[in-house]
Design a protein around this nucleic acid. Structure first.
Length: 576
DNA sequence: GCCGTTTTCGGCCCGACTGTTTTCAGTCG
């Protein structure tokens, strides 16, 4: 998008830079090799080593091709040893990899065709082929599009195939932040930008990013565009006009840069930040933004633009078209929660279950962050793989925390547990033990496959237990990996309100569960939400920033976030 | 294949549960 003066045109690939292999092309070959080795049942650690190296290479901003030609030592990078370094050299110098070609020759036609899509897992795809009686990637794509893979193989498999077959790839926000940093440095350094600011999904803190957008100021835009084509060796230009351009980054994310003059900077930031839904709301007040630009009005900052139309400044996280423009006009925008409002973490693990630091260490880490409390919520007895705490051990842990609290000043360790919600909706500890805890986080870790109705009622039954307090990661989703189990969120929100239960925004970057949309619905019904990290080590308490991003996207304020309260108030909230 | 090092090879997390099945391999944190 952007307010381009002319529409984008397809650009023919340049002749000479094509001789340079891009990091993406090198990574693809290593990934294909991993596929073929995997389908030959090679040592899985070897397979993973190639996959890891391929993934790593996609994040490089320097050109591997150039490094090889300058005889740089590639083994200084983690995950690249002698063997993979020499494979990369061979790819760069000969354009091919003998080992890969050989394996391709001996592969079945099915596996050969799968290896054209380096992100597909051949084992999984072969299972699909067998079950659906098909044998080609074209057929695979067709069955994906008509929903058959979803129906026959499940949503998870469908997601894998979808990601494997498409060329653009979404990326977790917190990985995109690293990429953003690298591209920003590249824009300011080699590209000679005077000013760079990130916009788009990254700025709105959307949990999964498909496009990196920058607003830039430079005296020589064409030079910047040509320099960007050499990012990571070679970065294909997808299209360009005189004031904007987009590129296909190695990682599969689209990079878009929009040129802006200082006097139109604010306007371009608004347009490039989006979202589409926000801009639609905004245009009802401002009229066409394109016309606004043509009028030559002066909008050096976003605030200048919003102010001119009688709007308060709208935080980027709120720009999703949920009525924020009307709120900005009426002066009723929420004061979004910030990391500084958080008084403690209500979901952390310790060495008692699958954490890597002791209760004392976790407490010290929380105290060092300026928190007033930390809730130790270790896994319950049934979750064997996470070394769930036995009934006896939890009794002992309760007594130990009491002792520790006796020695702490101005800080409190809360006695909690992440209690499994069992298949029948009962909780994984007896009531007389649950009663001794300050509160509980109750979560589903098994039987994801129950249908929506059964899963919903399972959670509602669990909420009927008077010692149920916070529903942990409500849908079990893992972003870009697993869609989560199906539940009727509205029914569960209603039941939570009735029973005095709460939700959690789990801050793990690949969970962020509740979603912003569901958190918004819960808050609208008056159900408070804990923003928790699920930390398994002291440093993971930092992940709270990811949860805060999500909470802000949901429009949550200090008053709607459970752990913005001091312990005394919290204690009252947990009385049912 | 990489890493670390106790320098020459073993570990790379793991163990119970699940299944319009695949009786093994995928899955849950």
């Amino acid at each position: 998008m952007g307010l381009g003066e002319e529409s984008e045109s397809r650009v023919e690939p340049e002749a000479s830079p094509a001789l340079v292999l891009s990091n993406a092309e090198i990574a693809d070959r290593l990934a294909s090799l991993a596929q073929l080795l995997s389908s030959q049942k090679e040592n899985p650690y070897k397979v993973r080593a190639y996959q890891r190296a391929a993934a790593r290479i996609r994040t490089f901003s320097e050109s591997l091709d150039e490094m090889v030609r300058h005889d740089a030592d590639l083994t200084r990078y983690e995950g690249i040893g002698e063997a993979i370094a020499s494979a990369i050299r061979e790819i760069v110098l000969t354009g091919t990899l003998g080992k890969l070609e050989k394996l391709r020759e001996s592969a079945t036609p099915e596996v050969f065709s799968i290896s054209q899509y380096p992100r597909l897992d051949p084992k999984r795809v072969l299972r699909i082929y067998k079950k659906l009686g098909i044998a080609s990637t074209e057929e695979l794509r067709r069955r994906l599009e008509n929903g058959e893979i979803d129906r026959m193989m499940g949503a998870r498999m469908a997601q894998h195939v979808r990601q494997g077959l498409t060329e653009t790839h979404a990326m977790l926000l917190y990985r995109a932040d690293d990429l953003r940093e690298a591209v920003e440095q590249y824009l300011l350094g080699p590209c000679g930008a005077r000013r760079v600011e990130v916009a788009g999904e990254c700025r709105r803190r959307v949990e999964v990013v498909e496009e990196l957008v920058f607003v830039v100021e430079t005296g020589d835009f064409p030079a910047m565009v040509s320099r960007l084509q050499r990012y990571g060796g070679r970065t294909p230009l997808l299209g360009a006009a005189k004031d904007h351009a987009s590129f296909a980054l190695s990682s599969g994310v689209i990079l878009r840069v929009q040129l802006a003059r200082p006097d139109a900077w604010g306007l371009q930031m608004v347009v490039c930040t989006g979202s589409k839904a926000h801009l639609k709301e905004l245009k009802r007040v401002t009229g066409s933004l394109r016309a606004l630009k043509a009028s030559g009005s002066n909008f050096p900052t976003e605030t200048a633009l919003y102010e001119k139309f009688g709007l308060a400044y709208i935080d980027p996280e709120l720009r999703e078209g949920y009525g924020e423009v009307a709120q900005a006009m009426g002066g009723t925008l929420p004061a979004l929660v910030t990391a500084g409002d958080i008084r403690g973490d209500l979901h952390a693990h310790s060495t008692s279950s699958d954490g890597s630091e002791s209760i004392e260490e976790m407490a010290l880490a929380a105290k060092a962050r300026g928190y007033e409390y930390i809730g130790i919520s270790d896994h319950s007895q049934s979750l064997k793989i996470a070394r769930g705490v036995s009934i006896d051990d939890l009794w002992a842990q309760i007594r130990r925390i009491d002792l520790l609290n006796g020695k702490m000043r101005g800080f409190r360790i809360l006695k909690s547990a992440e209690v499994d919600i069992l298949a029948d909706g009962s909780l994984d500890y007896p009531d007389d033990l649950l009663r001794e805890l300050d509160y509980t986080v109750c979560s589903i870790h098994s039987r994801f496959g129950l249908g929506e109705k059964a899963q919903t009622e399972r959670i509602m039954r669990a909420m009927d237990n008077p010692y149920f307090h916070i529903l942990g990661h409500a849908t079990g989703r893992l972003l870009l990996k697993r869609p989560g189990y199906s539940i009727d969120v509205d029914r569960i929100i209603g039941h939570a309100r009735q029973n005095g239960c709460f939700f959690e925004i789990n801050s793990s970057p690949d969970r962020l569960d509740l979603s912003a949309e569901n958190a918004r619905r819960a808050a609208a019904e008056g159900v408070k939400i804990a923003v928790s990290t699920d930390a398994h080590a002291g440093r993971e308490l930092d992940l709270i920033r990811c949860g805060i991003d999500q909470a802000r996207r949901a429009g949550l304020t200090k008053a709607t976030v459970l752990n913005c309260q001091p312990w005394e108030a919290l204690q009252r909230s947990f009385k049912r």
